[in-house]
Simulated assay, not measured.
Amino acid sequence: MKDLQEILAIARQVSWDAADILRSYYHGSAKDSSLNVQYQQNEPVTVADVAVSQYILDQLQAALGHEDFGYISEETYKSRNDAQADNPSWVWIIDPLDGTRDFIDKTGEYAIHIALVKETRPVLAVVAVPEAEKLYYATKGTGTFVETRDGSIPLRLSSSKPIEDLTLVVSRSHRNERLNYLLENLPCQKQKAVGSIGCKIATILEQQADVYISLSGKSAPKDWDIAAPELILTEAGGKFTHFDGSLLQYNTGDINQWGGLLASNGQHHELLCQEAEKVLAQLPHG
């Protein structure tokens, strides 16, 4: 198998090219720029999602093959209960278009996630934010970098705000009563609305926000929503855990990330997790 930095170079190039394809749909310059929106389980899917998914898979498989790696992409995933026996230990987890609603609504807040997971934890990640023309990437133990067309610089989080001055980055659409109740009762009340989990985590990396909370209800974020954003945040010095402090697990056979998840710039992380658990314990059960 190739060395991790060689694999990262391939993933970065694929991400830049995939970002160009998405932008061509977004700005209407693709050959067929009608997005042809369809719905699967109430979530929108466009021709751009499908085209970019196919492109990423084709490129990674052409460069790296099938022998050493499994591939899980949002657009091609089918429940793998029947395939549990041969769960490969190295798996690519791909979201070709994180923030499809934002893509359709033209907010600019959409991203591409490519993560390589070993056993159950990410070891390599790229998050591309096409409209910002930025790529965030990390490998386990070597830190996080932000790349523009001009080159790369390392990113390191540092912050020393009191807890009440922290800013929560929140969704415009994915909200439910439990999450609203939780957000209303946390010690930090500043909020910034951003689409796409990749863009939310990028907002923390750019130090425009400090905390992101996910609370599953009837549905939960999936492996491909979280795996790449988690590594670029934690390698920059941030934290991303369940409310009880335990690490997230990927490639477990269940692609859902259930429960309460908290991502932060690392500051007041444990305290915020404890506060979140406390608030939810007080929630009147209707």
Rank of each mutant, 00 (worst) to 15 (best):
L60W: 07
G99H: 09
G143H: 07
A220W: 00
V14R: 00
H66Y: 08
E43M: 08
T234R: 06
T139W: 02
K118P: 02
Q208P: 02
V14P: 00
Q54L: 13
I255A: 14
L186D: 05
G266I: 12
I7M: 03
A138I: 02
T76L: 07
G286P: 12
S214R: 14
Q59A: 12
V117C: 04
H113W: 07
R12Q: 12
A18E: 02
H242Y: 10
Q54C: 10
E6D: 11
V279C: 02
P88W: 11
R101C: 01
E67Q: 13
E230S: 07
L262Q: 06
D223S: 10
A11T: 12
L205Y: 13
S15N: 01
Q267N: 09
K118A: 08
Q59W: 01
I114C: 10
S246P: 04
P162M: 09
E131Y: 01
L271H: 14
A193P: 08
R156F: 08
R175F: 14
A51Q: 08
R80H: 10
A62C: 05
Q54E: 07
I10F: 00
H27F: 15
A138G: 00
A83P: 00
Q249Y: 06
T139V: 12
T252N: 01
D17P: 06
S219A: 13
T241V: 06
